[in-house]
């Protein structure tokens, strides 16, 4: 399978088939919190996509060089100190470093956008601090980390970018769909005990069940692409 097919499958898988929110149930807090209006949902989705791209890129670089078994920087330090044998595995530090990287990059991006793009900051800057501890972004970083543990071919930067873009756009799709449904819900005669979060959770569950219909589509696409390549 060539790289392009790989990238497409990673992107499509993260966006639709294993949708972060509706399949893996991460990032549910912004999914419920900011999905009352379509325009703010879109802003939140775009902000998540952007931060996810920045955070996975940073954590890909750190994982590649530091936080995996046999990482080059660690091995170099090990040799420098004059020790024999295999260098220690620093992946125990990955969670704390990912959180640190995500929080730091969100802060940086917030300041940067506020200074240089005030209009953009007005439209989605208010969502940025909310993303600081968003589990969807940590989830993307951890997926990238899993693919960098070896053995076998390790993910390149393009793979992790495809994952974060797919995951972010999948999140945007889910939250905008949800916001559209909730806007319609405003006009429905919902029984009082279920009003607000109750009916929103029910709708989210049904939406997640609908997305279960995509399960296995990735294998079908992969087969179709490889068989088309074979007959050509």
């Amino acid at each position: 399978m060539d790289t392009l097919t790989d990238l497409f499958l990673i992107f499509f898988g993260a966006a639709i088939i294993n949708n972060f929110v509706l399949h893996s149930f991460v990032g549910v807090c912004p999914f419920l919190g900011v999905s009352t209006r379509t325009d703010s949902a879109l802003g939140m989705g775009m902000a998540v996509t952007f931060v996810m791209g920045v955070a996975t890129t940073a954590s890909w670089a750190l994982t590649r060089t530091l936080l995996r078994p046999g990482a080059p920087l660690v091995a170099w330090g090990w040799d420098l100190a004059g020790f024999e044998g295999a260098a220690p595995d620093l992946s125990v530090l990955s969670y704390i470093i990912y959180i640190f990287v995500i929080a730091g990059s969100v802060q940086f991006v917030e300041m940067y956008v506020r200074k240089l793009f005030p209009a953009l900051h007005k439209s989605f800057g208010i969502f940025l601090p909310l993303i600081t501890t968003n589990c969807a972004i940590l989830f993307a970083c951890l997926l990238v980390m899993k693919e960098l543990q070896g053995p076998g071919p390790l993910w390149g930067l393009h793979h992790s970018l495809a994952l974060s873009l797919g995951g972010g756009l999948g999140f945007t799709l889910a939250i905008v769909l949800m916001a559209g449904l909730r806007e319609e819900l405003e006009f429905c005669d919902v029984p009082k005990p279920l009003k607000g979060t109750g009916i929103a959770l029910l709708v989210a569950g049904i939406l997640a069940m609908a997305f279960m219909g995509f399960a296995g589509v990735d294998q079908g696409i992969a087969d179709a692409i490889s068989s088309a390549g074979g007959t050509r």
Binding site: G77, W78, P88, L93
Partner: peptide
């Protein structure tokens, strides 16, 4: 020591950038 050094160094770099 290596773990502590890695974390500390990252914290210093991140703090400096911010």
């Amino acid at each position: 020591l290596l773990s502590a050094l890695t974390l500390g160094l990252l914290a210093v770099i991140g703090g400096w950038i911010l």
